[in-house]
Structure formats: C-alpha cells, structure tokens
C-alpha cells in the first residue's frame, strides 16, 4: 500500500472511531441526535453529557493512543527490536508509582489534578534516573539495562505501597486505577495531558531520520552524521512526556505500543521513520475502538480498558508470533 493512502485510510478510521466513541454510552439516544447535541443545546442533560463526558473521553482516547503508538514505534526503531515497547524503559511503571503514592497518601483527594501530576512527577524522576544510570554515551544496551532496573524498582515500590496499605479501600482503588481506563475523565484531564503530550510528540517526530539510519547499526549511523547521544536524549524525553502523560490520565494501558507498530510495519515497507506517524494513528484507532468496546461488551460493569487491551492484545500477539515461525 502506498504511504499516503495508508495515512489517509488510518486518519479516516480514527475519525470514524472518534464519532463512534461520541455516540456510544449509557444514555440511549440516536447517533445523529447525540452529535447534534454537541453543537446545539438540547432539552435535558444530553448536551452536558456529550460535551463534558463523551467528548473529553473521545479526545483522551486519541491522545493516549497517539502517545502509546508513537512511543512504541520510536522505541522499536531505536532499539531495533520488534519486542520493545514504551514500558521497556520504565516510564509507565514509574508514572504508575507516582500515581499509586498519591492514591495511598490521600494526596490525590486534595485537588482534581493531584493524581495526574504525581504520575508525571514519577515519569520525570524515571527519566533523570535512567539518564544518570545509562551514562553519557549513546549506546542502546546501557539504556535498556537502566530502563529494566528502574522499571523493576518502580514495580517493587508499587507492590510495597500495596503491601503496607492500611485500608483495603485504598488498595482496591489503586488496583482498579492500575488497570487503566478512560471512564469518568473530564476536560481538566485533557488540558493537563495535552501540553505535555504535544511536547513528547514533537520530540519523537524529530527522531525519524536518525531511526532510519540506525537500521544500519549504531556505528554506520554515527558515521552518517547521526548524533547518537542527542537522539537518545530526544527519544527518552519524548517517550517520557507522551507515555508519562498517557499513564497519568488513563492508568497503565499495555500492548498498544507493542502490537500497533508490529502490525503496521509491513505496510510502511518497514521504514522506522514512516512507522512513527502510521503507529500514532493506529494507536489512536486501537484505543478508541477498545474504549468503545468496553462500553458495549459489559455496559454498567466498568470493564477496564487496560484489561480488555491485554485480553485482545495477547492473542493478536500470539498470532503474530505464530506467523513469524519459520521466517528467519
């Protein structure tokens, strides 16, 4: 498939799923009536529901999906490993730790943005720790090792907080938050996450040239003028900003960053730079679709987005591995 055609098709898919996300919900109203209520004040609560509940939820679906898909493609390109994902460098685990501490300490109840801001602080701490551990060079191996170490530490500390949790309600809240969801979010979340994510997206969009050249290995890329140290810094900062903000508003949502680049890679001729935009759109489509699905499959039971994603994502991944058998 030609690249412009693919991008157009993915954009249309995202637009379609965005509209679908707006018209699916608890209130039983026709789709046209719902969309009309967005722009025109309706009798009753429909306009309020559309503007204050469904619209921010759909926006967050796109934002979280773009962040996870784009970060996944960038990480895989940088590490030259199709099994890499944003979680590899510990950003999501650290953001989750920040949020968990906020939930546990009661800080999250103080003001509406306390939880996402704590998660962002966790992601920022992770970046500093990784860059400190990985050293000044531009190597990928030191980055991955630092990421695994930070990730393990953050998971252990999260488990410790749960372990020592004095009341079961806080523990319950933490566990549910960690499953990842877009339910009951508001525009406050959108406006908190969007600036941080935008910075992350812009940074990651700068990595394309370097990622393409890294196909030839680090030495060849360096000899062709790629500044590996700068590339790594931009990549880590970009992934931290986008995935940190995504985790801050939606909790831990896995598999998007792993599966989406994997599925789309053959469609962009395996070129890492082209995979960035394609995966951003693909990620948005997947998160929107999954968020519609959680509302349709078990309405009223609050099926968590992260749970559904793992339930769908893992078999998709099995299939991919199955197909890869026998190939070199």
């Amino acid at each position: 498939m030609k690249y412009p055609v693919l991008i157009t098709a993915l954009s249309l898919l995202v637009a379609l799923l965005f509209a679908l996300s707006l018209v699916v919900g608890v209130i039983e109203v026709g789709p046209l009536e719902s969309l009309a209520a967005l722009v025109r004040d309706s009798d009753g609560p429909l306009s309020m529901v559309m503007r204050e509940i469904r619209l921010p939820r759909a926006f967050l679906g796109i934002m979280v999906g773009v962040s996870l898909g784009l970060s996944g493609a960038a990480m895989q390109g940088y590490l030259r490993n199709p099994l890499a994902e944003p979680g590899v460098i510990g950003i999501s685990a650290s953001a989750a730790l920040g949020a968990v501490i906020a939930l546990q300490s009661g800080f999250s109840a103080l003001f509406a943005l306390a939880l996402p801001l704590s998660a962002l602080a966790g992601a920022a701490a992770c970046v500093l720790l990784i860059l400190l551990l990985a050293g000044r060079g531009g190597g990928t191996l030191s980055l991955i090792l630092a990421g695994i170490a930070v990730s393990a530490l953050a998971s252990a500390l999260t488990a410790l907080v749960l372990n020592l949790s004095p009341n079961p309600f806080a523990a319950n809240e933490i566990v549910f938050w960690m499953m990842g969801s877009l339910a009951d979010r508001s525009f406050l979340h959108v406006w908190t996450a969007l600036p941080v994510m935008t910075v992350g997206w812009l940074l990651l969009s700068l990595t394309g040239r370097g990622l393409d050249r890294l196909t030839l290995g680090e030495e060849a890329a360096a000899s062709m003028g790629v500044n590996l140290r700068r590339l790594r810094l931009i990549l880590v900062a970009g992934v931290a900003a986008s995935v940190g903000a995504a985790t801050a508003v939606a909790g831990a949502v896995g598999f998007v960053g792993l599966v989406i680049p994997h599925i789309l890679r053959p469609l962009v001729g395996a070129r890492p730079a082209r995979l960035l935009l394609a995966s951003a759109l693909g990620g948005a489509a997947l998160v929107l679709a999954a968020d519609v699905a959680v509302r349709l499959i078990l309405p009223g039971r609050d099926l968590k987005l992260g749970v559904l994603m793992a339930l769908v994502g893992a078999p998709v991944f099995f299939h991919l591995i199955w197909r890869m058998r026998g190939q070199p």
């Binding site: 030839l216 290995g217 001729g269």
Partner: peptide
C-alpha cells in the same frame, strides 16, 4: 564513508531504500 565489520540490517526495508539512506 564507513563500512563497519558488523553487517547490520535491522528491518526488512527495500534494498533501494537502504542504499538511499
């Protein structure tokens, strides 16, 4: 131009694309 000893081609990109880098 530098031709390293390790012959690395990380992704199944086309020959033309690889050379055009």
């Amino acid at each position: 131009a530098w031709l390293p000893q390790a012959r690395e081609i990380a992704w199944p990109v086309s020959v033309a694309h690889l050379v055009s880098l």
